[in-house]
Design a protein around this nucleic acid. Structure first.
Lengths: 110, 110
DNA sequence: CAGGTTACCTCGACAAGCGAGGTAACCTGT
DNA sequence: ACAGGTTACCTCGCTTGTCGAGGTAACCTG
C-alpha cells in the first residue's frame, strides 16, 4: 500500500516468483495467490506486474511454460524453473542477503 | 554493480540518506562517502542518484539545506533532518523491516 | 600550470511496477 | 435463463527512481 513498497518490490519480484516455483510448477494466477498468502498482509502482487515479470523471465530462459489445466479445470499456463532459473535464484538470493546486510549496517549500526 | 542492486536501491536510498543525517548535518558529497563506507563494498552512491534524491526530499520538507563551508574550506550545501524527516525515517524504517520480514518468509520458509 | 580532488548540478535514457482496461470460461444463486 | 462473481490470461501507457555522462568551479599539490 505505501508507495515505497512498490519501489522496494523492484528487483525483488522476480526472485519471489522463482522461489515459488521451487515448490513445483504453478500457473501465474496461483503464483500470485501463493505469494500473497506466504508473504502475509502488506504484499499484493498486481497482475500488471506479475504477467510482465513472467514474460520477461521466460525470455531470459529462467522459466519455461506449458499450457495445461488448473485444479479447477480451467486453461492455465504452467511455469517451471529451468536450470538457468535455479542458478539465477541462487545468485540473487545471495545478492539479496548481501544487500540487506549492507542496509542494516547503515540503519542499525553498532 | 549487479543491475539488480540498482533496482533494489529504489525505495531505499532516501531512507539511507535520512539515517545518515541523524548523525548530524552533512553536505551531499559527504553523505555519499559516508554511506559507501558504512555500507561496505558493494554499494556505490552515484551522484546522479544522490543529488536528485536530496532535491526531492527537500521539496518534501524531510530535510532542509544551508550553504556553508566544508571541513576543507570549500562551499558545500549542508543538509539536516526536519521533524517531518525524522518521522518519515521512523515510518520507513518500520516499513523496511516489515518488508524484509515478508520477503524472508518467502525466501526461507519454515 | 597540469592534474587530481572536492563539491555541486542537469539531462535524457531506461526499466519495473502499477492501474485500468479488456477477453473468455466457468460456477452459483435466484 | 441470466446476472454476478471468480478464475485466468493479457496489454498499454504512465510514473518514477536510478544511472551515466556531461558540465562548472574552487582549491591543492608537484
Amino acid at each position: 500500500m505505501p508507495s515505497t513498497t512498490r519501489d522496494r518490490l523492484r528487483g525483488t519480484l522476480d526472485i519471489l516468483i522463482l522461489r515459488t516455483l521451487t515448490w513445483g510448477p504453478r500457473h501465474g494466477y496461483a503464483i500470485g495467490r501463493w505469494l500473497e498468502e506466504t508473504a502475509g498482509p502488506g504484499l499484493t502482487i498486481e497482475e500488471g506486474s506479475l504477467y510482465p515479470s513472467l514474460y520477461r523471465m521466460e525470455q531470459r530462459h529462467w522459466i519455461s511454460s506449458e499450457w495445461g489445466r488448473s485444479e479447477l479445470g480451467r486453461e492455465a499456463k504452467f511455469y517451471k524453473l529451468t536450470a538457468a532459473g535455479r542458478k539465477q535464484l541462487k545468485a540473487e538470493t545471495a545478492e539479496w542477503q548481501a544487500f540487506i546486510a549492507m542496509i542494516s549496517r547503515v540503519l542499525v549500526p553498532e
